[in-house]
Design a protein around this nucleic acid. Sequence first.
RNA 1: GGUCUCGUCGCCUAGUGGCUGGGCAGAGCUCUGCAAAAGCUCCUACAGCGGUUCGAAUCCGCUCGAGACCUCCA
Length: 489
Amino acid sequence: MKLHLYNTLTRSNQLFAPLKPDVVRMYSCGPTVYNYAHIGNIRAFLFPDLLQRVLRVVCGYRVEWVMNITDIEDKIILDSSLGSATWKPEMGVQTNNPNDNAAKLALFYEREFLNDLSIIGIKRSDFHAIPRATDFIGEITALVRKIVENGFGYESDGSVYFNLAEWRKSEKYGQLFTIDTENFRAGVRIDADEYDRDQVSDFVLWKAHKEGEPSWDFELNGKNLRGRPGWHIECSAMGHATLGLPFDIHTGGVDLRFPHHEDEIAQSKAGYGVETSAFWCHNEFLEVEGTKMSKSKGNFFTLRDLLDKGLDAMDIRFAMMSAQYNSVFNFTFFGLESARKARFRIQDYIHDLHESPLDSSALTSSYISEFRREVFAELLNNLHTPKALERVFAYINAHPAGSLDEESRNHLIAFFRELNAIFEVWVISKRPEKHVEIPEEVRNYAEQRWQAKIERNFALADQMRLKISELGFTVLDSKDSYTIEELPH
RNA sequence: GGUCUCGUCGCCUAGUGGCUGGGCAGAGCUCUGCAAAAGCUCCUACAGCGGUUCGAAUCCGCUCGAGACCUCCA
C-alpha cells in the first residue's frame, strides 16, 4: 500500500516511493541536549515515530531511521561552563577542560532524553543510528573544507562562513521557505556586527574558538582554525555519514524549515554536490490551552512534569494522535482526559473481543478486511490519525464485541495487534484479572450493606457505602450480587 | 514591516459545492433507591457581511478575531 506524504519541498501531497527499493532512509533532526524534553519536543519525535511505523507496518518497507543528538551548541556551552548554576552533581565533576564539561552535561541530558522517548513508546530498537555531533567532527570539518574548496565558503577572523551571494548565482536558496531578501538582510544585520562577512545573510559553518569554550582542531589551507561546528553543518555531515545522500525523508519541526533546513540543503549540495532528501516533512507546533507554550506563561511542561502530575504517558501519546501531525495541536488537560477515555473505550473493546460470547445464538459475522483497508487508507493519507481513529470508533459502535462470532473476533484481534504496532497504546490480551486484597473490615461492611439494601434500609446501606469508600473501596451492585473494587489511588 | 496559517456543536478534532463525521462533556432510558459499568436514544454546528450558484460550512471578496514564522526554539 502506498503512502501519500506532504512534502514541504514541493508544497504538495506526494506519492512516496523510496529511492532504493524496499528500504526507507529517514533522518530526523534530534534534540539539542541542554535540558529535559518538553511536550513540544515529544510531539516532534512522535511524528517521525508514527511515520516510520506506518512505513514498516502498513507499507512493508524496511526503515533506517536516524536521529541525531546535538551535543555542542551555545546553551550547552553556557550551562556547562565553570561556575554554571545549572550544573547538576549527577553530571559528574567539572574539570578545566571545556570539551569535557560540555560532553558531561550533554550526556546527562541525552540519557534523560532517550529515557523519555522510551516512556512515550518510542523504541530504541527502531533506530538505525543515534549519532552525536561531537563524534562526527572529522566528517564536519571535511565538509566545511569541501565547501570552501568548491568556492562557497570563506574564512574570516578564524570562522568559516557560507557565501550565500555566490551560491545564489547558480542555486535556489529558499526552497522550503519563502524568503524576502530585503527584510531578511535587515533582520540579520542587528546581530551581525561582530562578524566580518561579505553578505549579512551568510551563515556560519565553523565558529572560531573563544576562550573557555569547547573546541577542536581544524586544518584549512595550512592554518589551524581551532573552533567548533556551526549549528547547521552538523546535520549535513551526520546525514551523509549515517545514511548517504540523498536519502528519502527528512523530518523536523516547522521552525526548522528556515534557516536550519534551508542551510542544510545548501551546505550539503555545496559540499557533497548532491541533494539532501527527497521529502522534507515538518510537524506543526503544539499549544497549551490555546496559546504558545512558554515558560513565562507558566504553561511550559516537560514530560516529567506531566508524569509527576500522575498523568499516563500512553494518554499523552494517544492524545497527540488525535490531531494530524502537520496541524497545530492544542494540548489541554481536559483534552488529555478525553483522550484517556477514548483510548480505554478501544482498550475495553479489545478486552471484550477476548471474552467468550455469552449467547451464541445471535452472533453475526463481520468481514473486517474492508474495515482494515479503510483505517490503513487514512494513515496512508499523510498520516491522518484523527480520521483513522474515527473509522475505528465508527466500527466498534456498529459492531459490539458481544455480537460477533469467534472468527470475526479473531480477525479483529489480529487487526488490533497490527494497529497497535503503530499506535502502541493498547494491550492486546484478555482483560487482566485484578488481584486486590479486600480487607476483612471492608467485606463485613459490604455484606451489611447488602443485607440492609435487601431490607430496603437505604439509610444504613448508604452509611455502609460511605465507610467502605473511606477505606478506599467501592461496591458495584448487579442484580443478585455485588463486587468490591479498589478505588483509584 | 514581511511571509503564512486558521476561525466547525459546551470542549477537541475531521470533512467537503447538495446525502448534514468521530471523541469528550451533557440529557434520557434499560435499572426499585445510592454508586458504577455497559448498551441504546437525544444533543444537527460550521466567525460576520456581501457575492457566485438551482444549491455554500465548502468557491470569491471584504470585515472581525486567533495564531505562527521571519532571531535560539520541536
